[in-house]
Simulated assay, not measured.
Amino acid sequence: MSAVATSAVATSASIARPRVLADLVPGALVRDLALVAAGAALIGLSAQVVLPIPGTPVPFTGQTFGALLVGSALGWQRGAVTMLLYLVVGAMGVPWFEGGSSGLSGVTVGYLFGMLLAATVVGALAGRGGDRTVLRTAGTMALGNLLIYAVGVPGLMIIAGMSLPAALAAGVVPFLIGDAIKIALAAGVLPASWALVKRFQR
């Protein structure tokens, strides 16, 4: 086989190899549109899991887990578009933000934009194998959570008029255990999904 043919075969194999879980779904544009819509709906559904926490205006929700999971499964481009769709439609009045709310206002708005950043970065890392093993997935999800806080905490400081220590105490510390549980769940679900894919591809 010539060098040109070998290169073409290698390129074809590279293109066919799935980089994120969504690549396993057949189709192109229609598939992507369906996945983006389904991803936004999943995030909206997870945002309805709300647990108020005494001493902080920021509730515990399943929203961050939904955003990170969608970013990992769809990849950075589809993940970013999914979060943008979620934000835009919610800003227009669809009540699928936390607890059935809508509109880009309130103390959690910074966290919403943090989820956009996190879903994009987590999706990029997943495309490089960041969701294939337990340790890699845990690291990817931990970074995603940090990015959400990196945008959410300054937003909380501005909107609620809090100092940095107060914002950290109200907007980070109460959620660390819950975040650890979410990371553990993702570290189990995503690598297990890839293991199943490999098993059925044999």
Rank of each mutant, 00 (worst) to 15 (best):
A187P: 02
L190T: 03
L164I: 13
W194H: 03
W194G: 01
T56R: 00
P191A: 12
A91I: 11
P26N: 15
G62W: 04
D32M: 10
A119K: 05
L33K: 07
R202A: 15
Q201F: 10
I183R: 00
G129W: 06
V173W: 06
A169E: 13
G139W: 08
D23Y: 06
T64P: 01
I181A: 13
A187D: 11
G103I: 07
V30S: 07
P59S: 14
L68R: 05
T11C: 11
R132I: 09
V36K: 09
A170T: 01
A80Y: 00
F200Y: 03
D179Q: 10
M83C: 13
L45M: 12
M92H: 03
G71M: 12
A170H: 00
T108K: 08
T11A: 14
P52Y: 14
G90N: 07
R202S: 15
V121I: 10
V197Y: 12
P165Y: 02
F200A: 09
L85M: 13
G103Q: 11
L29F: 08
M83L: 15
P18T: 14
P26I: 13
D131A: 10
I148V: 15
T82W: 07
D23F: 15
L68D: 07
L51N: 14
P52C: 12
G144K: 05
T140L: 09
A91P: 04
L21T: 12
G66V: 08
V172A: 06
G99H: 04
T56Y: 03
L85N: 02
G66D: 03
G129T: 08
W194Q: 09
A169C: 08
G127S: 13
I15D: 15
L35N: 07
V189H: 01
L87G: 09
